[in-house]
């Protein structure tokens, strides 16, 4: 990015995730993908890899595709491995002078395909050091199969496999901190972001991830109106609440240096975020005040640790 970020100029670039895909209205995934791909320089080409996901089934419905770049969907558990293979073979061609121009390798997968089944594949690709970007669009459950918990689902969340009733009250475990795990791979760039406001945070992190040589990772919050149970127009509001309550802090780790990207002017209570979605409804029942308290404690603890790390 040679000049200052200008959303107006950026959106004038041709869309690389074109309209007409079948993602739900109010879904974060489409916004995330088009936002990341917008960071590509106009003249550069990309190879897009998808793990099995809502995104995958909705963006290429044969004979239609929403992508203007090369695209491969392999399986649920191996998108990072497939991307590794393509990148390694491309570099061999490039070294022998058999291919012109710049091709960038970008993998998109949901939290199921990243935190769970695709974790081994992702870890392997990051360790081997491929020049690629892995983007997790994190909607905190298996939405494509009808809202089952994943290891990204926050504690207390209602899903179809973490029921709310007399025997249990939603998910028992806290969300796995995947971004931290990726940082522990000592990769050149790892960041947590969200499509918020004028998309500056998402855009600049995507640009860094794409144009930093070596393996880079982006974890992007991507709300799901069906799974999170919110009216579709509330998407931007919910992302903002996630960030302002510090449920989803925006930060980046560049060559081992932690940096906070955004500090809320006023840190809002987690309750505000929880109240905006049906998946947490039971937490507001009388007698369940402890759930909200513990959710707040957990967020505070993580946030304090992040402040310490980033020296903010």
């Amino acid at each position: 990015m040679s000049t200052v970020y200008d959303l107006k100029r950026e959106v004038e670039k041709p869309e690389r995730l074109t309209g007409g895909h079948r993602l739900c209205a109010g879904c974060g995934a489409g916004v995330v993908v088009s936002g990341v791909l917008r960071a590509l320089e106009k003249e550069d080409r990309a190879v897009i890899v998808n793990a099995t996901s809502c995104l995958e089934v909705s963006t290429f419905m044969y004979p239609y595709t929403a992508y203007t770049d090369s695209f491969i969907h392999s399986a649920f558990e191996n998108s990072a491995a497939t991307c590794s293979g393509a990148e390694a073979a491309y570099n061999a061609l490039k070294r022998r002078g058999k291919i012109d121009g710049t091709v960038k390798f970008i993998t998109f997968a949901g939290d199921g395909g990243t935190y769970d089944i695709g974790f081994q594949s992702l870890s392997g690709a990051m360790e081997r050091g491929h020049d690629m970007v892995y983007v997790c669009y994190d909607n905190e459950a298996y939405m494509n199969t009808g809202i089952q918990r994943s290891s990204s689902t926050p504690r207390f969340t209602r899903t179809t496999t973490t029921a709310v009733g007399s025997a249990q009250q939603g998910k028992k475990q806290n969300k796995k901190d995947l971004t931290e795990i990726l940082v522990a791979h000592n990769i050149p760039y790892a960041a947590q972001t969200a499509p918020m406001g004028n998309f500056r945070d998402l855009h600049s992190k995507a640009y860094k991830a794409i144009y930093t040589p070596g393996p880079c990772f982006l974890n992007v919050l991507s709300p799901c109106p069906r799974g999170w149970d919110y009216p579709m127009a509330k998407l931007p509001e919910i992302i903002k609440l996630a960030v302002d309550t510090c449920v989803w802090p925006l930060y980046e780790v560049e060559e081992g240096v932690w940096r906070l990207s955004y500090t809320p002017k006023k840190k809002l209570p987690v309750e505000d975020f929880l109240r905006s979605q049906g998946r947490f409804k039971h937490m507001f029942k009388q007698g369940n005040e402890w759930m909200i308290e513990e959710a707040q404690q957990y967020v505070d603890q993580k946030w304090d640790k992040l402040l310490e790390r980033t020296g903010a």
Partner: peptide, 9 residues
């Protein structure tokens, strides 16, 4: 998936 959902419940 309905089998998992039933068993989860």
């Amino acid at each position: 998936t309905e089998i998992a959902e039933y068993m989860a419940r």
